[in-house]
Design a protein around this nucleic acid. Structure first.
Length: 695
RNA sequence: UGGCCCAUAGCUCAGUUCGGUAGAGCGCGAGAUUUUGGAUCUCGAGUCGAAGGUUCGAAUCCUUCUGGCCCAGCCA
């Protein structure tokens, strides 16, 4: 149970309207997509907002297709949108509408404005119209056709409708004010000639209403009370107001809110369409896509999506939401609901040498420790098992809690095992572990009360089911995809530069037998790995699982942190440099070459350096990187350098790392050094200005 | 040098109507607990964009400034 949240600004408006009886207590909202692509999370925010507002205030919610541009719209998109809105719980009952059904009424209203002298047929072509429009700071000029008589306009408009003119040759324009500070009011186009097949109207029309003309009318016709849209339509509101007032028809209140933006994500139909068309992804429903259908296929639940949408709030602040927030909402819901199973994604064979040959035991394992009612299941255990390759290290650091030579771990729900020896192949690769089990630890508890720190998952080799497991990572590796390349000339889709080459990894996994025949869409937690669901590509005997989202992984995080900061070993006493033999270093951590090339290194100049309180190895540096403001970087080099000796020095900084908090100080970047402990040396970029790229 | 909107913790938002000692969630850090290095629990951290004014007292009222966003499709 969470605290009841306070009202957001739209709810406040509605409550005020209810109090003043502005709409006689009625609340009518709508979601008005154009069927020119699949819906994405941004749309989810709007659907959830509009539908939940209607529900909360006892009103109605409509789904209406804004299908006023036949050139871009398709039935496939209509179908997918209906599915997605329903899946998200947007309950429009029988109120499924199409703007194209209103074309007749819209046309009548247009004639009415022509007759009133408030609209005229203009013969300017697109380029001329742009010239006449003026600029943001200069007023426009009146069209030479602006003063045509109502009769002439009516005749011309009817001939436009009857197909007499070529596309682009004439438009119907509202006669408002060519010198308005708001460009939308400079005689906007109401109708253009388009000779294209409409997905519902066929060839019945050859003039189509522009969005600006049509949209307010659609809302009016449906009796919408609160017409909720995104911020960019703010400047259009005076135009909608003008049309509605001139026509004297029902006038909804338009309210604008900030659309959703997410880190590591591209959210615009144009860009998503490009990813699909050029096959960077398998389709609109590729599980890496931020589309609703992609997320559904990936295993996201609609409840998690709705929780997320409620959680991010509704404001006019143009902000970017951390994708972690979405992932957390998904984890939260799945943690509570997904049955646990065991699956090994990178199998390493384990032979239990003291297990009775041929014996199989069925051990009982909880289905969900978060939910007693989920019950238990049995899993076969035998003398040949698979465990995760990552769960064994031949030469582990002290804080590695898993299996290693001579160390003991618990196999979840089964026994303690101890690694006695390692079997290697011709190239030195580990092919098998020989272990012994302790028969007194059945179920995972030692009768002598001894503890093991680690519990790992496993699968019996003879009983395991083979399956394909697809591990997804973010589609983009940059927080703001394309941002770093947006000024590159000739780059139409800069975000492609930030495509993550490792966003899909296909694994051959070993699953516990109960997973052999689960229906498409079924969701599970594979213990210690993450949440997974059965993909639609599954066939009998050839299951495919998608990883929806990984579990939070404190060990991986710690590893990453150790890679990010040099860790001196000996406790420092004096800030002065002392000659001492180099501290022994462990095996050099490896990073993949593909990752290495993504590291951005820049020259920086240290402006200030100070010791970090309660951390004797860390220095807090202020480094000029040629950016607007210097960065704060916390570096583990205090043993080798006195703070004052660093000021003014040039250093090499890795600039594109995720900010990381050390002792509560946010560190943005990493200073490159070689060696360790007290004999660390800094890498010098040479005498170059701060911000220079280091190659 | 037009119009409009926005600015509170790293992030998302309350608090502004009606001036009274800055809050929540997430993230981050520390600790507890644990048969998932998960989950859970405890604790920690802010020049309220800036300056000036009114006031006993300003995130809140007034003025000015700064920064950001959107708009010049016959797209939506």
């Amino acid at each position: 149970m969470s605290e009841p949240r306070s009202l957001h600004f739209i709810e406040e408006i509605i409550e005020a309207d209810q109090a003043s009886n502005k709409w006689s207590g009625r609340v009518q909202t709508r979601f008005p997509p154009e069927p020119n692509g699949y819906l994405h999370v941004g749309h989810a925010k709007s659907i959830v907002l509009n539908s939940s507002l209607a529900k909360r205030y006892g009103g109605k919610f409509n789904l209406r297709f804004d299908d006023t541009n036949p050139a871009k719209e398709e039935q496939e998109y209509v179908d997918s949108i209906i599915d997605d809105v329903k899946w998200l719980g947007g309950d429009f009952e029988d109120r499924l509408f199409y703007a194209s059904d209103y074309f007749g009424k819209m046309y009548e209203w247009a004639e009415a404005l022509v007759k009133k002298g408030k609209a005229y047929v203009c013969d300017l072509n697109a380029e001329q119209m742009r010239e006449y429009r003026g600029t943001l700071t200069e007023p426009g000029k009146n069209s030479p056709f602006r003063e045509r008589s109502p009769d002439e306009n009516l005749d011309l408009f009817r001939r436009m409708k009857s197909g007499e003119f070529a596309p682009g040759s004439h438009t119907l324009r509202a006669k408002i004010d060519m010198s308005s500070g708001n460009i939308n009011l400079r005689d906007p186009v109401m109708y253009r000639i388009v000779k294209a097949h409409h997905h519902r109207q066929g060839d019945a029309w050859c003039i189509y209403p522009s969005y600006d003309w049509a949209h307010g009318l659609e809302d009016s016709l449906e009796g919408i009370t609160h017409s909720i849209c995104t911020l960019e339509f703010e400047a259009h509101r005076p135009l909608y107001d003008w049309f509605l007032n001139e026509l004297g028809i029902h006038h909804p209140q338009q309210i604008e809110f900030a659309k959703l933006r997410l880190t590591y994500t591209v959210l615009s139909k144009r860009n998503l369409l490009h990813l699909v068309k050029e096959k960077y992804v398998s389709g609109w429903d590729d599980p890496r896509m931020p589309t609703i259908s992609g997320m559904r296929r990936r295993g996201y639940t609609s409840q998690a999506l709705r929780t997320f949408c409620e959680d991010i709030g509704v404001t006019k602040n143009d902000t970017v939401i951390d994708i972690l927030k979405l992932e957390n909402a998904v984890r939260d819901h799945l943690n509570a609901t997904a049955p646990r199973r065991m699956a090994v994604v990178s199998p390493l064979k384990v032979v239990v040498t003291n297990w009775p040959a041929g014996q199989v035991e069925h051990v009982e394992v909880q289905n969900n420790p978060e939910d007693e009612k989920a019950g238990v299941r049995t899993v076969p255990f035998s003398g040949e098992l698979f465990i995760e390759q990552d769960d064994f290290m031949e030469d582990p650091p002290k804080k590695f809690f898993r299996l290693a030579p001579g160390r003991e771990v618990r196999l979840r729900g089964a026994y303690f095992i101890k690694c006695e020896s390692v079997v290697k192949g011709p190239d030195g690769e580990i092919t098998e572990l020989r272990c012994t089990y302790d028969p007194t630890t059945k179920g995972g508890n030692a009768t002598d009360g001894r503890k093991v720190k680690g519990t790992i998952h496993w699968v019996s080799a003879a009983h395991a089911v083979d399956a394909e497991v697809r591990l997804f990572d973010r589609l983009f590796s940059a927080e703001a995809p394309g941002e770093a390349h947006k000024d590159t000339p000739g780059l139409e889709f800069p975000f492609l530069k930030d495509l993550n080459p490792k966003s899909l990894e296909v694994m051959k996994a070993k699953l516990e037998p109960s997973l052999a025949s689960e229906p498409v869409g079924a969701r599970f937690q594979f213990e210690r790995l993450g949440y997974f669901c059965v993909d639609a590509d599954s066939k009998p005997g050839a299951m495919v699982f998608n990883r929806t989202v990984a579990l939070k992984d404190a060990w991986a995080k710690e590893q990453a942190a150790e890679d990010a900061a040099p860790k001196p070993v000996a406790p420092p006493k004096a800030p002065e440099k002392k000659k001492e033999p180099p501290a022994p270093t462990g095996p050099a951590p490896e990073i993949e070459f593909g990752d290495f090339t993504k590291v951005a290194m820049k020259a920086g100049k240290v402006l200030a350096a100070e010791k970090v309180e309660k951390a004797d190895k860390l220095l807090k540096l202020t480094v000029d990187l040629g950016e607007a403001a210097p960065r704060t970087i916390v570096s583990g080099i205090a043993e080798a350098f006195a703070p004052e000796s660093l000021v003014g020095r040039n250093v090499v900084v890795v600039t594109n790392l995720k900010p990381r908090a050390l002792k509560g100080i946010e560190s943005r970047g990493m200073v490159l050094a070689s060696g360790s402990g007290k004999t660390l040396s800094l890498i010098n970029p040479g005498d170059v200005p701060p911000g220079s790229d280091v190659k």
